[in-house]
Write a protein that binds this DNA or RNA. Structure first.
Lengths: 226, 226
DNA sequence: CAGCGTCAGAATGTCAACATTCGGACATGG
DNA sequence: CCATGTCCGAATGTTGACATTCTGACGCTG
């Protein structure tokens, strides 16, 4: 059943544009609320406006930008309501993913996850690159969704993934220490339960992991925004 | 807080095209697997290929069609794996929506839901228009998501909504009676629990409602497809 | 006759020009 | 001075032509 080689993924210029702009948003070159003008982007990226529109449509699907009729698209702002929405949904999705992934997980998948946790630990003990740590965090959860092997579930995750990424980046910038202290332990606990057979337990821990992140993020948001 | 008037919703031709094509898919004019050629659609709908592309992107986001690089987009097929995926996700989403909606529901929302249930009952006792019944079913769940008032959750629902609609249409065509017998009772039970204060109970009933639909649909799928 | 290379048709991807719409600046009148 | 109406610049929406890629068929070769 397993194909030996995967089909080459060929993509359009729109996807390339989406990657570039997404990276720029994460880097902070497009801060929250900044306008993303099609004409400017088309010139800067060296592609036509049509391709830029395709790319922006991708980012809109990821919830990273807001679009409107005859109105410039802008980078989303981070309000406490948005955090509540995203993390409430993510709690349900991550819980389902963990429950579905548990009976499907194999030794090689466990190794993958443990390697990621080890890299996190090295990063925490080492120079503490917050950006790299967040990237590992997101990749860890990506892996669980891949194991769950439910395309619709993965799509739903991808619709909030970039927002979570953005939120986590903000979280570690405003308060790196509380995030750093729990991240390794919590992820390792998830891996351990994924190796067991108690589906209720994995789901519960996965949900609590998200709930903890939500609390931490809300605490770091300045009161004026709340 | 409540605005007296709502902003007029202006949309592009792409959205109009999406509506027309979606309707055609539900009507069966584009059966599962049928190719949706941009040039043909552009001629038939009287708009340019660019707008058709926009519309197809909308339908792709709804999971109604499959697209590929330099490859004609096609209407999705209904395999048992797809049913498992969609309904596993929907169980989590509907459960969350019901739980969040419960403390937010008011008298006018309850009336709306009860009116829909009454219409279902009238349809069941009357001439039994399966299409209309399915439409009421979907609208019922739409309403719960509106009450939950979580935009990200609603988006996730919309990403599977059309697929659920298509599946349900198939379900009532292959075996109308079992669907008809339970539909009124199950929805009325959900409304009753939404009026209570037991969040666990609403979530549980909402999830079971989806699970029952999944079982019924899988039973109606021909064994060859499974 | 099986396998491979080539080719042609048709569909999608990309582009740049034109049409429409929005938001604010400015002038005007009460 | 505030409210209203008008206009203009700039951005997005739409379109048709051009470029690229895929799929299947055909013919050649071993």
């Amino acid at each position: 059943m397993a194909p030996t080689v995967e089909r080459v993924k060929r993509r359009g210029l729109g996807d390339d544009a989406a990657d570039l702009v997404r990276e720029a948003i994460f880097d902070g070159r497009f801060p929250p609320g900044a306008p993303l003008r099609e004409i400017e982007l088309a010139e800067q990226l060296g592609v036509s406006r049509g391709s830029v529109r395709d790319g922006l449509a991708v980012l809109a699907r990821e919830g990273l930008i807001r679009t409107g009729w005859h109105q410039p698209t802008t980078v989303i702002e981070i309000e406490s309501d948005d955090v509540e929405e995203v993390y409430a949904l993510r709690e349900a999705l991550d819980g389902l993913a963990a429950r579905v992934a548990q009976p499907r997980i194999g030794d090689s998948e466990v190794s993958q996850l443990l390697d990621l946790v080890d890299e996190m630990a090295a990063e925490v003990d080492g120079r503490g690159d917050a950006t790299a740590l967040v990237h590992l965090d997101i990749t860890f959860h990506d892996t669980i969704y891949v194991i769950a092997a439910n395309q619709r579930l993965t799509s739903a995750w991808q619709a909030v993934r970039s927002q979570v990424h953005l939120f986590q980046l903000r979280r570690v910038r405003d308060g790196y220490l509380p995030y750093r202290d729990g991240v390794v332990r919590e992820h390792r606990e998830i891996v351990e339960l994924l190796q067991g057979t108690d589906q209720r337990a994995v789901e519960e821990v996965a949900r609590e992991h998200v709930a903890a992140a939500r609390r931490s993020l809300l605490a770091s948001l300045p009161p004026t925004v709340r």
